[in-house]
Computed example of a mutant assay.
Amino acid sequence: MSAVRTVLGDIRPEELGVCDAHDHLFLHSPRLPGQELNDATAARAELEAFRAAGGASVVQWTPYGMGRRAADLPLLSRAAGVHVVCATGLHQAAHYAPELLDGLRGKPADVFVAELTEGIGTSGVRAGLVKVAGGFHALDAHARWTMTAAAEAHHATGAPIAVHLELGTGALDVLDLLCGELGVPPHRVVLGHLNRSPDLVVHRQAAETGCWLAFDGPSRAHHATDWRMPDAVRALAEAGFGHRLLLDGDTVAAGARAVDGGPGMPYLLRRVRPRLERDLGTELTHRVLTDNPARAFAVDWDGR
């Protein structure tokens, strides 16, 4: 039976409810000095604000080695009354100390599978997806290494693979590798940040494979593409791909949180949802925020 693997255990897909399909409660990276998400009190307040806006679940894409604080996630999920899905996987090499990556040589797939089926460290929390990343209009050796490991983990568990597209680029290269060379079914791949490169032709080509397309809102200040996101979503919906779309907030820095004066997780429901309901109608918007995530992140774990 299909289930979504949350930090509190497996739930029926229909229990996921209104979902922020890509966000972060905890995160640290040398590429974001001084902007770490490492405050559990702030993370709880953010989840509670999302819940108050009508949200029911958050998929945290923070992968291995980037401060997931997996042991804290069940406490936050219970306290806020929000389902949380945790990730395994690896981001771009620039987000890690070389020695951490050296310690994974030859066995990243084993780590991913263990975190999906046994738990992350001693926390007992099991991941529900694998997160990897491409580069800017290309896939370097690190991306190919991590995506190969992600594909192995998928074949062992059925887990979905969520992909950070650098500035929204490289979608077709990612699909060629994961779905072409490595045999991952397209409906098990989630492409993130597509709004950051609003190329409607590429969006449609990607959608035609059967993968999931995730759009953030709002982007960082230097990604002047927010105003194009509804048009991109509408174009895909009008082309018949409304059943492949996901929406998310992707809060990656403390200053972006609602509790710190930023838009935060509630923005997805406070501003993005009404805009899309006006443009696309309430039925399709509900599908994108509720029905689609339930299908995208549900897996037949079969006892794993």
Rank of each mutant, 00 (worst) to 15 (best):
Q60K: 03
H83T: 00
V111L: 15
A156L: 08
G65I: 06
G249E: 01
Y64G: 05
P98C: 07
R270A: 12
D23A: 11
H222M: 00
A214R: 03
A159L: 13
R295M: 14
L246A: 06
G134W: 12
V84L: 13
A79Y: 08
G34H: 10
R257Y: 00
P108W: 04
R270G: 05
C19N: 06
A143G: 15
T209L: 12
H155T: 09
A45D: 15
V7E: 11
D250S: 02
V125Q: 10
P266G: 03
N195T: 04
V202Q: 12
A150D: 01
E14D: 14
L280C: 13
Y267H: 11
F215S: 01
G303F: 07
H164E: 06
E152M: 11
A138F: 08
P218M: 01
G262A: 04
D20C: 13
S29L: 03
G158V: 08
L8N: 12
R228N: 06
R31V: 15
R257A: 01
R271L: 07
V111A: 09
I11T: 13
P293M: 06
F26T: 15
C86G: 03
A97N: 04
G67Q: 04
R188D: 00
D216E: 06
V18S: 14
E181S: 12
A43G: 14
D102K: 10
L182D: 06
D173Y: 01
L104D: 03
G242M: 01
A156K: 13
G54N: 12
E46L: 04
S197F: 09
A3V: 04
D39M: 06
R270P: 01
E181R: 06
L191A: 02
A71I: 09
M66L: 15
G81T: 07
L104R: 06
